[in-house]
Amino acid sequence: MITKIISKLKGDSSYNIRSRYSSREWFVILYERGFQVLRGFIAKFFLLKTKGLCFKGQSVTVKHRSLFTSGKNLILDNNVFINALSEKGIRFGDNVTISRNCTLICTGVISHKGVGITIGNDTGINSYCYLGGQGGIEIGDNVIIGPQVKIFSENHNFSDGATIIKNQGVTRLGVRIENDCWIGSGATILDGVVLKKRTVVAAGSVVNQSFEGNSLIGGIPAKLIKKI
């Protein structure tokens, strides 16, 4: 019955629970999800714009809610911090999961308003990730982002030796991650990077250049390991 409910919510007829759980385990899972739904309903009442169900954990902060929109079945786990202040705001598709202790921020300093963050359908962002959308971040559908991944979409200029770095301004090229990518735990994606469809980034990598699709990349800085 639970499989059918989740399958219907996700709109995925192939969804299946492959593991066995005891009645006690199901009780704990459903108890927590029930309170998340209740918090999500209250948040929607206070102008959090989402479609369908919203699962909201404890100590979730969404600033500038008028600039935040989401499709159905959004999960915001415990201690998520979102600041949507930006030109385009933050926009999520359907079935997006933002796990606990993630930070999504679009404007670092008031003097330079950010661009924003877009995340497609069925994409999951694991715990302790940081997304800085100052220069714009676009993430496609069915993307897996492991824990402690950092994505930066702006870069400080530092070439002028006569001026302190913080007064030299920034470069904003943005970051784009296309559909069906997997970003391994602890990876860092820097401004200007485009990862084409079906790119896999090894854990702990620092990606400072763009790569074609169907590629396994890794290292500091990341290099092509092999085509997949």
Results as ranks from 00 to 15, higher is better:
Phe81Ala: 05
Leu53Lys: 12
Phe158Asp: 04
Ile2Ala: 07
Gln148Met: 13
Val200Arg: 01
Leu53Ile: 15
Leu67Val: 00
Ser127Pro: 00
Val60Tyr: 02
Leu190Asn: 10
Lys51Arg: 14
Gly192Ala: 05
Asn155Ile: 03
Thr171Ala: 07
Val207Trp: 04
His112Val: 08
Leu30Cys: 10
Ile228Tyr: 12
Thr123Lys: 04
Lys44Arg: 15
Gly108Asp: 11
Gln58Cys: 09
Gly132Lys: 03
Gly34Lys: 01
Phe41Thr: 12
Phe158Cys: 03
Ile144Lys: 09
Gly136Phe: 05
Gln209Tyr: 01
Leu76Ile: 12
Asn16Ile: 07
Tyr130Pro: 00
Lys197Cys: 06
Ser159Trp: 09
Ile119Val: 15
Asn73Met: 12
Asp77Leu: 06
Ile5His: 08
Ile228Ser: 05
Glu154Trp: 03
Gln148Asn: 14
Glu32Leu: 10
Thr123Cys: 06
Lys88Ala: 02
Ser210Ala: 10
Ile75Gln: 05
Asp122Val: 01
Val143Tyr: 04
Lys197Phe: 00
Gly161Met: 02
Thr163Phe: 00
Ile177Val: 13
Asp141Glu: 12
Asn78Glu: 15
Ile125Tyr: 08
Ile119Asp: 05
Ile177Cys: 09
Cys129Asp: 09
Val201Glu: 06
Val193Asp: 10
Ser59Tyr: 14
Ile217Asn: 13
Gly186Pro: 10
Phe81Ile: 08
Pro147Arg: 12
Asn157Asp: 08
Tyr21Gly: 00
Arg91Gly: 01
